[in-house]
Simulated assay, not measured.
Amino acid sequence: MEQSATLDIESLKITQEQFILASQSLHLQRPGCEAVYPVGLYGWRKRCLYFFLLLLLVTMIVNLALTVWIMKVMNFSVDGMGNLRLEQEGIRLEGISEFLLPLYVNEIRSRRESVLVLQSDKNVTLNARDDRGQLTGQLTVGPEAVEAQCQKLEVRSRDGGRLLFTADEEEVVMTTEKFTVTGSEGAVFGHSVETPLIQTRASEDLRLESPTRTLTMEAPRGVEVSAAKGPLKVSSRKDLQMESTEGEILLDADTIQLGSLPLGVYTASAGQASREQAAYEVCVCPSGKIYLSPAEGSSTCQAMSNICLWS
């Protein structure tokens, strides 16, 4: 027993010595302690990080404070902001509102018992377009004029049923009972005017004139010119022509005066007859010209009078 134990110890020693010799022959080194590197931020890096974190926190606080202040000033709420309110019928604006870009709406309506004012530094333009975006109507209110561009312009009564005025490319129609012109110079028409009645006020005169052209009055059933409480004066620089194609010309008055009518004679003693004659006869030439002729026992009107020959 002791001999076997001694052999084991000896064998262990031999094995240990062999290991030491083998390790020395291979030049193996024992593992030593490795270098320790510190992990983290130290020094000025750490101070810079804390400074940026503090700056970010201050910026967030200032941003939050400004956001709250803007919401308070602009009066933000669940219904809108400021004078703007979102309703089921649309958008409601209180007070004065300014639009810097075009506004596209279906209807603009003011509050009850209040006016709607559209104001601009230059002009106010209202455009109407079709489904393809083409311009169909335009109303421009400018500093010098109000212009309307459309196919037909209509003006209706307050209830919207009665048509008062309409204008298109072919004609202008006024359906009012009375059209009054109060200007001192009256109304000037460049072309023809169709109307059933032209009259003036009771205390004013009615004057129809054409300074450089002719004045023509025509009607399919006749033209009536009357002055109820004053004189009727018709004057012309050249010829005054009254013509009735199918009827007669009637001058009905208590006194009819035709002044400055020429004296028509065919004899050589016209000067003597004109000085001694007290009564004259009114004659009418075939052309319609009126002249005076000395009155005698029978008619002295002659178709061969000098007035008729030179008319």
Rank of each mutant, 00 (worst) to 15 (best):
D168F: 07
P286D: 10
C308E: 01
V181L: 13
A219Q: 00
A128F: 07
K72Y: 02
E87W: 06
D239S: 11
E224R: 01
I290D: 01
S23Q: 11
M174V: 14
R221F: 12
Y291N: 02
M217Y: 00
M1F: 05
C150T: 15
E113F: 14
S184M: 12
P143Q: 04
T15P: 00
L54F: 02
N306L: 14
N123P: 05
L261P: 00
L55H: 02
I198T: 08
R129I: 13
G247W: 02
I70T: 14
F179Y: 08
L66M: 12
S274R: 01
R156L: 15
S226E: 12
I249R: 01
A273R: 05
M81S: 12
S298D: 08
G297A: 10
W44S: 13
D168V: 11
A22E: 08
T255F: 04
G288Q: 03
C283Q: 03
Q149S: 15
P196A: 08
G90D: 04
G264H: 01
L164I: 08
E204V: 14
M174R: 04
A65P: 00
P196I: 07
D130F: 05
N306C: 11
V225I: 15
W310G: 14
G43C: 09
L240K: 03
E276G: 10
S157I: 10
L126D: 11
E34T: 14
C301R: 01
D254A: 07
M242S: 05
C283K: 01
T255Y: 03
D252I: 07
E154W: 00
Q24E: 15
G288L: 05
S305T: 10
E87S: 11
L64T: 14
M1A: 14
S97T: 15
E177G: 14
L163Q: 02
D8H: 03
E170D: 12
Q149E: 14
I307L: 02
L206F: 10
V173G: 06
L206K: 06
K178N: 15
S274F: 03
S97D: 03
S311G: 12
V181N: 14
D130V: 09
R213V: 10
L251V: 09
L84K: 00
R45M: 06
Q18K: 06
C33E: 10
A279V: 07
L116Y: 02
S269I: 15
S25G: 12
D252R: 00
V284M: 13
R92M: 13
L232A: 10
N106F: 09
R47Y: 03
A187H: 05
G230V: 09
M71I: 10
Y42R: 04
K13E: 15
D8L: 10
M242T: 07
Q199M: 09
F189Y: 04
Y266T: 14
K229W: 07
L12I: 12
V58Y: 04
S110W: 00
Q199H: 11
M60W: 09
S97H: 02
L49G: 01
G40E: 03
L215C: 06
E94I: 14
L53N: 03
V105G: 11
V62T: 11
Q134K: 05
P31N: 06
D79E: 15
L116H: 02
R129A: 11
G32S: 07
L206P: 05
G271P: 00
V223T: 04
